[in-house]
Design a protein around this nucleic acid. Structure first.
Lengths: 148, 148
DNA sequence: TGACTCATGTCAGTATCCTGACATAGGTTC
DNA sequence: GAACCTATGTCAGGATACTGACATGAGTCA
C-alpha cells in the first residue's frame, strides 16, 4: 500500500492537536478552582491588554463565534466583571471594558495561567522557543491561505 | 508594572491555540462536504490504523471523553460504518472494527485531510518539520507532568 | 440619492462535548 | 477468599459552542 492514510504517529497535525489539548487541559485544571473557563479567561485577558474591544473582536481573539462571545459578555456584564455602554457612540460597536472587579478576578487567573505556560517553556531552550514561534506562525499563515 | 499578565502577542500558548484552531477550521472545511466532523474522522482514522481499538482507547486517541466517543460509536454502528461484538470476549472491552462501508467513507476524508496537512507542511523546511515535531512532543510531556 | 456590500449585535434552535453517577470486570495486596 | 484500586461501558443531565437568521449601521460605487 502506497496510500496508507495519515499516519497518526508521525503526523504534525495530530501532534499539534495533542499539544493544544494538553495545554487546554492544564489551563482548565488551574482555572477550575477559580470558577473560570478558558474562554472566560481569554476574554478578560484580551480586555486587560486591549481595553475597549468590541464583541466581535473579542470573539476573534478568543477563537469562538460572535454569538458565543455575546452570551459570555452578557453574563460577565450581569456579574459586574465588565461594562458596556447601553448605546453605541458610533455604529453598532459596543466597546467593552473591565471593571475593578474584573481586573481583580483576572489577576489570580493570569498568575495561574502564567505558571502553566512557564512549565511548558521550561522544557524548551531559548532557541527552541524562537523556532517554535516562527514555525507556528508559518503554520497559521499557510492554513489560512494568507500567502495565496 | 512588572506584572503585566500574559502578553498574547508573544505567548507561545496563545500561538499554539491559534495554530490548532486554524488547523481545526481547515479540517472542518474540507470534511463538511463529506458530512463528517473532525472527531468522526479521527475515530475512523484511528480504527483504520489500529483495528480492534476499544471505546476508551478511541476516546483517548481522539482527545474526547469515553462518553462522547460512546455516543459517536453508537451512531457509527447504527449507520454501518463500524461493528462491535454484542458481548465482550474478555472483560468489558468491546473491540471495534471498520466495515467495508466505513473504509470507503474514510478514503475520501483521509485524502481531504492529507491535502490540508500537506498545505501546512509545504510552508516548512524539512529541518523545521523535525524541529516542530521534537518541540511539540516536549511541550506535551511537560504539560502532562511526565518528567516529574 | 440609491443600490450594493460588508460587519456588527443579537435572538433562537441545535449540535457537540462535558461532568456525575452506576454497575461491573480484572488486577493487586493482604 | 476479601478488600482494594483501577479501568471499562453506559445512562442521564447540563454546559458550552455552533449554525441560521434578522435588523441595522458604515462604507463603496455608480
Amino acid at each position: 500500500m502506497s496510500q496508507e492514510g495519515v499516519d497518526l504517529e508521525t503526523s504534525l497535525g495530530y501532534l499539534l492537536k495533542e499539544a493544544s489539548s494538553a495545554l487546554r487541559a492544564a489551563m482548565e485544571e488551574v482555572l477550575r478552582p477559580l470558577g473560570m473557563s478558558v474562554t472566560h479567561y481569554a476574554c478578560l485577558e484580551l480586555l486587560a491588554q486591549r481595553p475597549g474591544l468590541s464583541n466581535s473582536e473579542l470573539a476573534r481573539g478568543a477563537f469562538v463565534t460572535r454569538q458565543t462571545m455575546n452570551v459570555l459578555l452578557q453574563a460577565l456584564e450581569r456579574d459586574g466583571y465588565v461594562t458596556r455602554p447601553a448605546e453605541a457612540a458610533v455604529g453598532k460597536v459596543l466597546p467593552t471594558r473591565l471593571t475593578a472587579r474584573g481586573r481583580r478576578s483576572l489577576e489570580k487567573a493570569s498568575a495561574a495561567v502564567r505558571s502553566v505556560e512557564a512549565r511548558m517553556l521550561a522544557s524548551l531552550t531559548e532557541t527552541d522557543q524562537s523556532a517554535a514561534f516562527r514555525i507556528l506562525q508559518s503554520m497559521v499563515h499557510s492554513l489560512r491561505g494568507d500567502n495565496e
